[in-house]
Write a protein that binds this DNA or RNA. Structure first.
Lengths: 152, 152
DNA sequence: TGTAATTCCGACAGAAACGGTCGTATACTG
DNA sequence: CAGTATACGACCGTTTCTGTCGGAATTACA
């Protein structure tokens, strides 16, 4: 759980790829898909979605394709994920404006909202640019793996 | 996306409930389920899982039920979620030990591993106790809602 | 000893989400 | 007009999630 969908991954990869090729006025969905071995049609839909959200600019016809709508530094991972996976947020409760419908009780979400905020913050702090130059900040995270799995 | 499963929610709620009733030597799955309107059988399985992971102690028979295995301060949300939802972690890639199978390319996961770490850290910093006394630390997070939804 | 309460556990079913494909319409280039 | 692309909706198979059912083992208590 708590993992991104493949779509979101694909989206991030695609944007990263675009950021790495600023010389190209546009890259087609197929170009990017081939570069990573992603199903082309699926990626196409993802890029269309990102275009609708204003993160990309598209251009049909020959030599058409997609390009970043803004500087890679100005596009956050948060926006990409939000665009593709939709509004998410930790608690199953948090739907729309009204809290939990069933429970008068779901006091859980209050502290969890902070977690939410933190995650969103981290995601917002990471730009496509950071992904492209993938030796960004931070201490490598060698032992980020205490996912030793109690079970499953 | 990025949201907890209902099971994890239920699990957290249940532990919180147990933490709020330290006077009881044990509470049955049904007790907790009724308190929140959660399907009893489902909650039962969740509590069994938490028991297997060592977060709860169970006792069968009349007046049996579940109790926290440790002090509520010593049980983190991280452990609960890990127990119920299993090892998760951001990138779809990160499976087992080997990285992405398809892509020689998935350089994305490197920066995202940091995000992962951060999230895990936050989750670990929140104890069941924090949930129980739900006026814990932190600045309320009033405007934690910029989930205005670009789409969907 | 018997009965009720309760955990334990596996199997299964319905529903939703995910990942991916297909077909077609539309737009742009030359 | 022909070719290259995006745009978009419908559909499908698989997996995951949520929840239910049925039965077995355990314990308390009268």
């Amino acid at each position: 759980m708590l993992k991104l969908t493949k779509k979101a991954d694909y989206g991030l990869m695609a944007l990263k790829y675009l950021a790495e090729h600023p010389e190209m006025p546009a890259l087609s969905a197929k170009d990017v898909a081939d570069a990573y071995g992603i199903p082309a049609q699926l990626l196409a839909k993802i890029l269309q979605q990102l275009t609708k959200s204003g993160l990309l600019r598209s251009h049909a016809g020959m030599n058409g394709g997609y390009a970043l709508a803004r500087d890679a530094r100005e596009i956050s991972a948060f926006e990409v994920i939000l665009s593709i996976d939709g509004p998410f947020f930790i608690t199953s409760c948090t739907k729309g404006k009204t809290g939990c419908e069933l429970t008068p009780s779901c006091t859980i979400k209050e502290p969890l909202a902070r977690v939410n905020e933190t995650i969103a913050g981290v995601l917002k702090s990471i730009s496509i640019q950071d992904l492209a130059e993938h030796e960004s900040p931070a201490p490598r995270a060698k032992e980020s793996q205490q996912l030793v799995s109690l079970n499953r």
